[in-house]
Design a protein around this nucleic acid. Structure first.
Lengths: 113, 113
DNA sequence: CAATAATATGCGAATATTATAATATTCATC
DNA sequence: GATGAATATTATAATATTCGCATATTATTG
């Protein structure tokens, strides 16, 4: 039981473990948005966004409401937004090391400014 | 920039996205433990645990202190423990649906009791 | 009911993650 | 410095994720 509980938590973290899905949740943190608006704001392929939405749906992190032609998404539980907010705090607390890390990992130019 | 920040967050969630690593962090939430004790409490292969510890180290979620023969691990930032605690709340809030989900996904017998 | 707009799904290729087994490193003690 | 205990690393095979593309579904409008 202990273990399947952890598997459940891990699954949710897994769902959060993609930049696009984090972006989606952050965009939704102020209220519901249609898939179309999300796609536009993200500036990504429709199918790709739709797939990420499917992941979030599968793990029940978002709920969706169909209104005619469109589908509106919203964050299912505010706790997730709190978690993301905590992560922001975490990031700021470790900003220096994080930048160094990112620096070493990827494009050094952007982070250097 | 916005994007690399999200990649950073995603990376951390990725590190959290494994039952064993969640178990490790939960075991460490009360204070530091040696790798040996962790291995014993987890009841898993030494190499496997060590690999998961390496992931947590790489993402800087834990720090380690070498004392003679042993290596003691601890959670680097209490915020992570808060995050895990929030997730616990989240889990309890969604217990029913979660069980149904797990039920449909895997062994139906265990969860049915 | 044909055409179009909004969204979802299926599939294949590229890539990443995981567990296991084998081996290496590091430190303490004799 | 050989031996043993504690921990880490490497290689590999199995599995899972991700993206792009093509196609399907559903609702609206003419």
């Amino acid at each position: 039981m202990q273990d399947s509980l952890r598997r459940f938590k891990a699954d949710i973290f897994q769902a959060l473990a993609h930049p696009t899905r984090i972006a989606i949740l952050e965009l939704l943190s102020k209220g519901e948005l249609s898939a179309g608006v999300l796609i536009e704001k993200l500036g990504m392929e429709q199918a790709n966004v739709s797939q990420h939405l499917a992941v979030l749906r599968a793990k029940q992190l978002v709920s969706n409401r169909k209104a005619g032609n469109q589908v509106f998404y919203s964050v299912r539980d505010r706790i997730l937004i709190e978690v993301l907010s905590l992560m922001r705090t975490y990031f700021h607390a470790h900003l220096k090391e994080s930048l160094t890390m990112l620096d070493e990992m990827e494009s050094p130019l952007e982070t250097a400014r």
